[in-house]
């Protein structure tokens, strides 16, 4: 195994004469794309993956700020969030690479890597292609460089301070604010609760239609914080097609399926060996343990409540090996 710590910010080449795309470099890692594929290079090798899958994963890396734990772009390349730094790796969670000393990693400052990924996304995302949306809702990402799509990439992830809809908090979604009901949720009731508020309690009494709110989401696989109880975050999201990464948990994560169905393929976090298939339908609740990686498949657009514990004490518990692997024993 080879592990490095990179201090340098990224560099970008001039646009390629044929494809029009720039090549990026940070530390010992290089990133290049052509008409169909993204290429990741490191001092000893090169790895390629379809550019559509790569861009869908990359845009969520940036939106989630590397999220919790490990994001496997595929079974070779990915990132692990060290909270302030990020480990960028090749084969780190692949038995064959690791057992034969073919794995490689570098630890990079989170802000530097995020800036690299943002610049890469901006350069590699063509006009009309939106990596946040379902494949049926967007143009193809393939071919030579053809314009940009800063509007799609500039979305800000919703992070309510207390609750969506409260005064001075994240707003509700409406037609007027640019959030029409998604084609697959046209049958979702748009009624709102009847709310009577006594004078003086405008910041305390609030209710809204969460299902209608989710039916108007314009992105997939992008959990947004809608209600907060201290460090307990309700992060509902709308899902369609495939979660673009295999998420390797570093802490317990919970799913509550609010509508329709998602099938989760669950693998061992370190080896990638299959462990379970979890089929979740409306009303189902399941935990994802802290020692697995999971990838979801949603045949129809569905509503999923992702529940996270964002306690700042957890990274230290993880570092000390004190974070629970499963939340309850029975």
């Amino acid at each position: 195994m080879s592990a490095q710590t990179a201090q340098a910010a990224y560099s970008a080449s001039d646009p390629d004469n044929y494809t029009g795309y720039r090549t990026f470099q940070i530390g010992g890692f290089g990133f290049r794309r052509d008409e169909y594929f993204a290429y990741v290079t490191w001092p000893d090798g090169s790895h390629l993956m379809p550019v559509d899958a790569f861009l869908r994963a990359l845009v969520r890396e940036v939106a989630w700020n590397f999220f919790y734990g490990t994001l496997n772009f595929d079974d070779v390349f990915g990132t692990t969030n060290l909270y302030g730094q990020v480990e960028l790796y090749i084969g780190r969670f692949n038995d064959a690479y690791r057992d034969n000393d073919r794995d490689y990693s570098e630890t990079i400052d989170s802000d530097d890597l995020r800036a690299t990924f943002q610049a890469m996304l901006d350069d590699w995302t063509n006009a009309g292609y939106d990596p946040f949306t379902a494949p049926q809702e967007t143009a193809q990402p393939f071919g030579r460089k053809s314009g940009r799509n800063p509007e799609a990439l500039g979305r800000v992830r919703v992070t309510a301070k207390r609750m969506v809809g409260l005064p001075d908090d994240a707003p509700l979604r409406t037609d007027e604010s640019g959030y029409p009901v998604n084609r697959m949720f046209a049958d979702v009731e748009q009624d709102e609760p009847e709310v009577e508020i006594e004078p003086g309690f405008e910041n305390e009494v609030q209710s809204f239609n969460l299902f209608a709110y989710l039916s108007r989401s314009d992105v997939t696989w992008n959990p947004s914080v809608c209600s907060v109880v201290k460090d307990s975050l309700f992060c509902p999201t709308s899902e369609e097609f495939i979660l673009p990464v295999e998420h390797g948990n570093d802490r317990v994560e919970w799913f509550i399926q609010l509508s329709d169905e998602i099938v989760w393929e669950v693998k061992d976090k370190h080896s990638g060996d299959p462990r379970a298939v979890v089929t979740m339908r409306a009303g189902d609740v399941a935990c994802m343990p802290a020692d697995i990686r999971h990838q979801g498949f949603s045949p129809k657009r569905s509503m999923l409540l992702v529940w996270e514990n964002a306690s700042p004490a957890i990274p230290e518990m993880i570092a000390k090996g004190e974070a629970p692997i499963v939340p309850v024993r029975f």
């Binding site: 399926q257 462990r275 379970a276 979890v278 609740v285 935990c287 939340p327």
Partner: peptide, 18 residues
């Protein structure tokens, strides 16, 4: 739905339905 086990304990998923 449910948990189809390949190599694990189903209790690790704490699977229920509301």
């Amino acid at each position: 739905g449910g948990v189809h086990i390949i190599n694990d304990d189903p209790r690790n998923y704490v699977f229920s339905n509301v």
